[in-house]
């Protein structure tokens, strides 16, 4: 009984770190030793670099090999006029299993929609008509908006200093990592935590 309570106390921070997540916005094995939460903004240039250059390496070396469980969190910054709209569409798309497709497109065309504000055009370009209809109808749903706000609140609680920020966790140990997110250093950190 006492041992159970101690174990629960030990696990609580880790459970809290990855609770309230949308399973459709994750990648990898939930039982992986290391969990990485990615707090990102679709309109942030550094997030685009991370998504297109570092994330594929992370997925290849650690997610595909079962060492890392990846959780995507929305952290639209107020300074970006269209990032919350983008997050709405991406989160709505996640409900139907298209999160990665929409996220890839949003980062790919970031410069264009950021300048014109035509976020939907980018989202629609990678979905069928039926999928578009579903995503459009869900984007303003209270549950979608609430989910994004929960992510934002979680980010503020950490606190996330800039985007992208990765929260790398193993058990009770949890480290927010931001900055250039050099892959060599990130790989070393994950390997050290995995030991």
């Amino acid at each position: 009984m006492r041992l159970g309570a101690v174990a629960l106390l030990w696990l609580l921070p880790a459970m809290a770190a990855v609770s309230d997540i949308d399973a459709n916005k994750t990648a990898g094995n939930p039982a992986a030793p290391v969990t990485i939460q990615v707090f990102s903004d679709f309109e942030c240039p550094s997030c685009k670099v991370f998504h297109e250059q570092t994330l594929p390496l992370l997925q290849r070396d650690f997610v595909a090999t079962g060492k890392v469980y990846l959780v995507y969190r929305e952290f639209p910054l107020a300074m970006h006029a269209h990032s919350r709209e983008a997050a709405n569409y991406a989160t709505a798309a996640a409900r139907f299993g298209f999160y990665q497709t929409v996220a890839d497109a949003l980062f790919r065309d970031q410069v264009a929609w950021s300048a014109t504000g035509k976020v939907w055009d980018t989202v629609a370009s990678v979905l069928t008509l039926a999928q578009q209809k579903k995503v459009k109808a869900t984007a303003d749903d209270a549950s979608v908006l609430g989910e994004i706000q929960r992510d934002v609140n979680a980010g503020h609680a950490i606190p996330v200093p800039s985007t992208p920020t990765l929260v790398v966790s193993r058990g009770v140990k949890s480290y927010p990592v931001s900055g250039t997110l050099n892959y060599e250093i990130l790989r070393s950190l994950i390997n050290d935590l995995s030991k």
Binding site: V177, G179, T180, N182, L186
Partner: peptide, 18 residues
Amino acid sequence: TPWELFAMSIDSYQLLPL
């Protein structure tokens, strides 16, 4: 904290090789 966290901050200044 692990040394990599400080390394990430140093690397952000983009001055030194890895």
